[in-house]
Amino acid sequence: MSGESTVRDPVTNTAGDESFSWTTPSPWVRSLLVRNLPLRRLLPDTEPSYVSSMLYTMGVLTLASMLVVIISGVVLAVGGVQWWHTSTLGASVNSVHFWGVQAFFLFMAVHALASFFTMAWRGGRGFTWVTGVLAFLLSVVTAFTGFLMLTNWDSQYIAQQAKDAFNAMGIGAVWNVMDVGQQFTLHVVVTSGLLGFIVLIHLGQIRRRGVAPPPGAEHLEVAEDSSATPVSTPREVPEPLAAAVRRPGAQPPVPQPVPDRGSL
């Protein structure tokens, strides 16, 4: 726990350095969030100038598509699995859902390619890449289960064909792609929920670490607070709160060149 000399933020009541406790974990969680996701990172006023490229809008366009897909999907779910076959409104909402998914994958594909060719994993951003790939894989599964609950010939044939791969991999024993009810719950609850969770982590990673600088400019990215250096007990940490809430540019930190290690 922090000592008496530690300065606490009156809003979050944390010094940013609380230790974990099984019985009172809340201070540690507050500390973790304040330290890693300060509001100045979540809602920044500036961004590096190199981010001014259309390619960097692909991520937010993917997210916007996802929002359209979720909203139209909720309406379709409320209408019922077969609503879109019998209602003009349902068919229209289905069309929005369908094109939202197409846009989602298109933007995501460009986002993934841009991330690959800019080596977006550099500078300790490997986990951001991992969560992005996981989001892509979960998106594929979510779209797939959506196609399996169309309740028409298309879904019948897709399911009948897909079962062979699932059975060959041993998955088919528990994941019966011909079971429309199972696909509905997987699509609406399980895979969508997991995807939303992974996307949240992905976004958190991006807000925390920022976008990787252009190759050759890594040295312009410097550690922001004193915790970059080894610290002992929290009592010995000098002004952790001040570091946690310091506005970028208000008190420029001592530049600490980050060596270009080529990858991470």
Binding site: L42, P44, P48, T57, L61, R209, L220, V222, E224, D225
Partner: peptide
């Protein structure tokens, strides 16, 4: 991996505006 700050050139940016425009 401590928080890092970009010390190169920056530009004004508002995430909420960008997100709303994208939607």
């Amino acid at each position: 991996h401590p928080l890092r700050h970009w010390t190169g050139p920056e530009r004004k940016y508002d995430l909420l505006f960008e997100g709303t425009a994208a939607v």
